[in-house]
């Protein structure tokens, strides 16, 4: 079909937990798209990640007849690091307060997961980005 894109909405939603309430309601309600259908489909696509309590970035493309499509992305690096470190949140003062530790093997695993969505083409660059996020979150990388 001759789809003309009128809007792109970027959300982060806990896997399996989209419902007709904030954030989905206000974000998609303004665009006038079928909220219930989005919630059902998002929850179905992310039910596996829901078991790990992951937050899922999703990009919803709205077309000029108020139909839509969406793609889900890999969970944010910061969320994957917190999970790997076994902590709830990063440090507000990452230079002064270190709040957790991850191993280089964990960093590489996260880099592999994130590679499709990061702005780089090789694992080494992805690892560097993950290390950077770890440092800015007050998480020490061992090894």
């Amino acid at each position: 079909m001759a789809k003309k894109v009128v809007n792109q909405i970027k959300l982060q939603i806990p896997a399996g937990q989209a419902r007709p309430a904030p954030p989905v309601g206000p974000a998609l309600g303004q665009a006038g798209v079928n909220i219930k259908q989005f919630c059902d489909e998002f929850n179905n696509r992310t039910k596996e990640q829901a078991k790990d309590g992951m937050v899922i970035p999703v990009v919803i493309t709205v077309f000029n007849d108020r139909s839509f499509t969406f793609i889900t992305k890999t969970p944010p690096v910061a969320g994957l690091l917190l999970k790997a470190a076994g902590i709830q949140k990063g440090s507000g003062e990452p230079n002064l307060n270190k709040v957790g530790t991850v191993t280089m093997a964990q960093v590489e695993e996260i880099a592999r997961i994130k590679l499709p969505d990061l702005n780089c083409t090789n694992l080494e660059s992805a690892v560097n980005q993950v290390v950077g996020t770890a440092l800015s979150s007050g998480i020490i990388v061992e090894g």
Partner: peptide, 19 residues
């Protein structure tokens, strides 16, 4: 974006939009 969104989730956000 990613790190602040993660902070907001840790504070109880139900969801985040990037605009």
């Amino acid at each position: 974006v990613e790190s602040v969104a993660t902070l907001l989730f840790a504070q109880g956000a139900a969801g985040v939009q990037e605009d």
